[in-house]
Design a protein around this nucleic acid. Structure first.
Ligand SMILES: Cc1cn([C@H]2C[C@H](O)[C@@H](COP(=O)(O)OP(=O)(O)OP(=O)(O)O)O2)c(=O)[nH]c1=O
Ligand SMILES: [Mg+2]
Length: 714
DNA sequence: ATTCCAACCTCT
DNA sequence: AGAGGT
DNA sequence: GAAT
C-alpha cells in the first residue's frame, strides 16, 4: 500500500532528475564541484550540513538541444519522394506503397464512399500514401480498424491512425461487416459508441479497445489480446475473463533494466570451469511441499569453453531483447524433442526429474510478443564473441555504465535498448545512416556508433568515464547505507576519501558500520563459505523447530562460485509469517548473537510488526571477515513466489514482473496475482492470488518456459 | 511534451 | 517523503 | 536517448 505512493513518487523524482540534466558534456560539473569545495571547507557542524543543498551531479543544460525538426522533415520528404520513384532503396527499411484509404486490399471493400465528403476527402488525399513497414512487420495485416470517433481530425488521432495503417491495418471509415477492431478514443465511453453506431448488442466478434491499443501492439510488435484490462473501453461491459481466451500475442523488445546504482558486480560464476569440478549444487524443490535439500550434481562441464559466461554485469543488464524476432514464429525454442541439445546449455543441472523423463510438453508456447523478454530467452545462446558489433557494443556499454552510475534511468534505458538492437544485427553496422535505420537507435546514438567505428574510440568517454569525482563517488557507493544521493552530496561537500568521512562526516548508524566494514563487505564470499553460513543458521533454527527450512538463495542458488552476500530463505510449509518471524527474531537471532555468529543488525524490522526480513552481518567461526546476511521469512503459501524473487537475478525478476504486468497480472515476492486494476501506475485493486506456493507453476502461468536457477542470469 | 518504469521492505 | 536496501 |  505504501508502495504505491512511493513508487509514483519514485518515478516522478526520476523524471525530474532526468529533466535537469541533459548532456552535451555533463561530467566535468563534478570537477567543478570538487574544485569548489576544498578540503578546508569541509563542513563540520550539522548546521552547515543542513544548509547544504543537494547539488545535482549534472549541470544545467546550456547547450541548445539538437532540434532537427525541419531538417529531418525535409529529409524524410525527400526520401519519400525519392523512393516513390525508385521503389526499393536498399538503404531504407521502409517501402512506400500506395494504398487506397479505406480498405485497399481488403476483400469486400467497405469502400470508399466516404461519408460526408469534404473533410474526408481531404484526409484521403493526405493519407493516401502511407509508408508501409516491411511486410513481416505488418502486424495489423488483414485487420480492419474502426476508429471512434471517426470524424475528428485531431493531430494525435490522425497520427495514431496513420501509424496503424503503416503496420498494415485497414481503416474503415464506415461501419462495415469486416471490421475487426473498434478503437475508441480516450475520453469517450462505450455508450457513446453504441449511440453513434446505433447498434445495441455490440458484436462479439469485434474487438473493442481503447486508444492505447494500436500503439501498444506496435510497441510489442504483435497483436495483443484485446481483452486485457488496460485496453478496456470505459463503460464497456467488463468481461470477467481476463485474457484467458487470448488468441493473440505480441512482441516486445521492451525493457528490463535496472538501476543498480551500486557498482555492478561481475558475476563470474556459473559454469564452474573445467576441472574445477562441480560444486554445482542445485536445490531441488519440487512441488508444493518445499523439499529444500541440496543435491549435488555430477560434473557438468562438458564444454566449458563454449559458454564462457563471464558476461560482465553490463552485459547482464542488457538482456531484455537479445535474440529478437526473425525467428520463425511459433514454438520458440521448445527444442525438447532433441534431447541431445547439441549446442548448448547443459541443462544437466536440472533438478529432480530423472532425465529420462525429459518432459517434452512442458514448454509453453510463448506468444511471439513475449519472446523478447529476458526471462524467456533461452539463456546465453549467442553472444559476445561472434557478434560483429562486439566492439561497438563494448564501448556503448561503457556509456551505459556511466549513465547507470550516474542515476540517469532513462538514458540508461535508451542505451540498453540501443545496444540490444545493435547486438541482434547480423552484420556490422558501419555508417550513421545504417545505424539510424535500426529502431531504438536515434540521432545521437548513431553519431556515436559511427565515431566508434571510424575512430575506434568515443571521445565522450574520455572525460565522462574515469573522472576523479566519479571514482570517489564509486568508492563512496561501496559503503552500505550510502547511495548515489549521499555519495554525491559528500563529494559536493568536499569529502574525498573514506577517511574524510570517517573523521568528519555525520553518518547514520548503518553508514558507520558500512564504512567500518568497508573492506569486509567488498569481498566476495566463496561458495563454500556461503554454505557454511547457511549451515550455521539452519542448525540454530532447526534446534528450535525441526520442520523449519533454510534455503540458500540469491546468486548461490544460481550456481555462482562466489557471492556478494548470503541470502537465506526461511520457510515451513504450514507456517504463517507471524510464526516464522517470531521464531527467528525472538529466539534464533538472539541466540546467534550470543554465539558470536551475528555481529550487527542492519535492517531488523524491529519497528514494524509486520516485518518479513532481517538483514545484518555474520562471521563464520575462524574468520574475522564480516559478511552481509539476508534472511527472508516466507510463509508456506508464498514459497514459490519467494523463491522466484530470491533467486533472481534482479534483471530476471524485473523482466518476469514486467511480463506479468503486460499480461494484466502482478508478480511480487508473495505471489502471482491476476485481474490487477491499475489506474495510472497506481494499483486500485490488488487482484486475486493465482499462485504463490509453486515456483514452476508461476512460470507456467506466465507462459515462461521453466528455467533452472543457473539460467536466470540476464 | 510525454512516455519509457518491478515491486516491494526499512530507516531517517 | 526520500533515501537506502533486496 | 528514442519514439511518439
Ligand atoms: C538487488 C535486487 C535483488 N533482487 C532479488 C534477486 C536477487 O537474486 C535476490 C538477492 O539479492 P542480492 O543478494 O542483492 O543479489 P544476488 O544474490 O543475486 O547477487 P550477489 O552475489 O551480489 O548477492 O533478491 C531483486 O528482486 N531486486 C533487486 O534490486
Ligand atoms: Mg545475494
Amino acid at each position: 500500500m505504501s508502495g504505491m505512493r512511493s513508487k509514483a513518487s519514485f518515478f516522478r523524482a526520476l523524471d525530474d532528475l532526468d529533466r535537469s540534466d541533459d548532456s552535451q558534456d555533463d561530467e566535468d560539473s563534478l570537477e567543478h564541484l570538487l574544485a569548489r569545495a576544498k578540503p578546508a571547507e569541509i563542513p563540520n557542524s550539522t548546521a552547515a550540513l543542513s544548509n547544504t543543498e543537494r547539488i545535482t551531479l549534472t549541470r544545467a543544460n546550456t547547450a541548445p538541444s539538437p532540434s532537427y525538426t525541419d531538417k529531418e522533415l525535409q529529409e524524410a520528404v525527400a526520401q519519400d519522394a525519392h523512393s516513390r520513384r525508385r521503389p526499393q532503396p536498399s538503404e531504407s527499411n521502409l517501402r512506400t506503397v500506395k494504398r487506397s484509404q479505406t480498405t485497399g486490399t481488403m476483400p469486400s471493400t467497405t469502400s470508399g464512399h466516404k461519408r460526408g465528403g469534404g473533410p474526408a476527402l481531404k484526409k484521403r488525399r493526405t493519407n493516401s500514401i502511407i509508408k508501409l513497414v516491411p511486410e513481416e512487420q505488418q502486424i495489423f495485416k488483414d485487420l480492419v480498424f474502426f476508429f471512434f470517433p471517426n470524424n475528428d481530425v485531431s493531430p494525435s488521432r490522425r497520427l495514431r491512425i496513420q501509424r496503424a495503417r503503416e503496420y498494415g491495418a485497414h481503416w474503415a471509415l464506415d461501419w462495415t461487416e469486416n471490421i475487426t477492431h473498434v478503437v475508441v478514443d480516450k475520453d469517450l465511453q462505450y455508450s457513446d459508441l453504441i449511440k453513434h453506431l446505433n447498434l445495441e448488442p455490440f458484436p462479439d466478434n469485434v474487438a473493442l479497445v481503447n486508444e492505447t491499443y494500436p500503439a501498444e501492439c506496435i510497441r510489442f510488435r504483435s497483436i495483443l489480446s484485446p481483452s486485457q484490462v488496460r485496453f478496456r473501453v470505459e463503460g464497456s461491459t467488463t468481461f470477467g475473463q481476463t485474457d484467458a481466451p487470448t488468441p493473440a500475442p505480441a512482441t516486445v523488445p521492451a525493457s528490463a533494466d535496472s538501476l543498480p546504482l551500486k557498482a555492478p558486480r561481475k558475476e563470474k560464476q556459473q559454469t564452474p570451469e573445467l576441472s574445477q569440478s562441480p560444486i554445482r549444487q542445485v536445490i531441488h524443490d519440487s512441488e508444493p511441499a518445499p523439499a529444500p535439500e541440496v543435491v549435488s550434481t555430477p560434473a557438468v562441464p562438458e564444454n566449458s569453453s563454449e559458454v564462457t559466461r563471464q558476461r560482465d554485469a553490463l552485459d547482464e543488464i542488457i538482456a531484455e531483447a537479445k535474440a529478437t524476432s526473425l525467428l520463425p514464429l511459433d514454438l520458440i525454442d521448445s527444442s525438447d524433442e532433441e534431447p541431445g541439445d547439441s549446442d548448448s546449455e547443459s541443462e544437466s543441472s536440472d533438478p529432480v526429474p530423472s532425465r529420462s523423463k525429459q518432459e517434452p510438453r512442458g514448454e509453453p508456447v510463448v506468444e511471439t510478443w513475449a519472446r523478447n523478454f529476458a526471462c524467456i530467452q533461452k539463456f546465453d545462446p549467442n553472444n559476445k564473441h561472434d557478434n560483429p558489433n562486439n566492439h561497438t557494443i563494448e564501448v556503448l556499454q561503457q556509456m551505459l555504465d556511466y549513465y547507470t552510475r550516474t542515476g540517469d534511468l532513462w538514458r540508461t534505458l535508451a542505451y540498453r535498448k540501443g545496444i540490444n538492437a545493435l547486438r541482434r544485427q547480423t552484420k556490422k553496422v558501419t555508417s550513421k545512416t545504417e545505424a539510424r535505420s535500426i529502431p531504438g537507435i536515434g540521432e545521437r546514438l548513431a553519431d556515436k556508433i559511427e565515431e566508434i567505428v571510424l575512430t575506434d574510440h568515443l571521445r565522450r568517454l574520455d572525460h565522462t568515464n574515469e573522472t576523479e569525482a566519479d571514482k570517489i563517488i564509486q568508492e563512496f557507493l561501496g559503503i552500505y547505507g550510502c547511495g548515489l544521493a549521499q555519495a554525491s552530496k559528500w563529494v559536493a561537500q568536499g569529502y574525498r576519501s573514506l577517511s574524510d568521512l570517517r573523521e568528519r562526516a555525520p553518518l547514520t548508524k548503518n553508514q558507520r558500520i558500512g564504512l567500518e566494514r568497508y573492506r569486509d563487505f567488498a569481498q566476495r564470499i566463496p561458495r563454500k563459505e556461503v554454505e557454511a553460513h547457511g549451515a550455521v543458521v539452519r542448525k540454530a533454527i532447526q534446534a528450535v523447530d525441526k520442520a523449519m527450512q533454510v534455503i540458500i538463495g540469491g546468486s548461490y542458488r544460481r550456481g555462482a562460485l562466489d557471492s556478494g552476500d548470503i541470502d537465506l530463505l526461511i520457510t515451513k510449509p504450514d507456517a504463517t509469517l507471524e510464526q516464522i518471524r517470531s521464531l527467528i527474531l525472538d529466539t534464533v537471532v538472539p541466540q546467534l548473537f550470543q554465539d558470536g555468529f551475528l555481529q550487527v543488525g542492519l535492517q531488523t524490522s524491529r519497528r514494524n510488526g509486520d516485518g518479513s526480513k532481517w538483514q545484518g552481518a555474520s562471521v563464520i567461526p575462524g574468520s574475522t571477515v564480516w559478511r552481509r546476511l539476508d534472511l527472508l521469512f516466507v510463509p508456506g503459501a508464498e514459497f514459490g513466489a519467494a523463491m522466484v524473487y530470491f533467486t533472481g537475478n534482479d534483471i530476471f525478476n524485473r523482466s518476469m514482473r514486467l511480463l506479468a504486468r503486460k499480461k494484466g497480472m502482478c508478480l511480487n515476492q508473495r505471489g502471482l496475482f491476476t485481474d490487477v486494476l491499475r489506474n495510472a501506475q497506481v494499483k486500485v485493486n490488488p487482484g486475486r492470488l493465482v499462485e504463490g506456493r509453486d515456483e514452476r507453476r508461476i512460470f507456467a502461468l506466465l507462459g515462461v518456459p521453466w528455467r533452472p536457477p543457473e539460467q536466470r542470469i540476464c
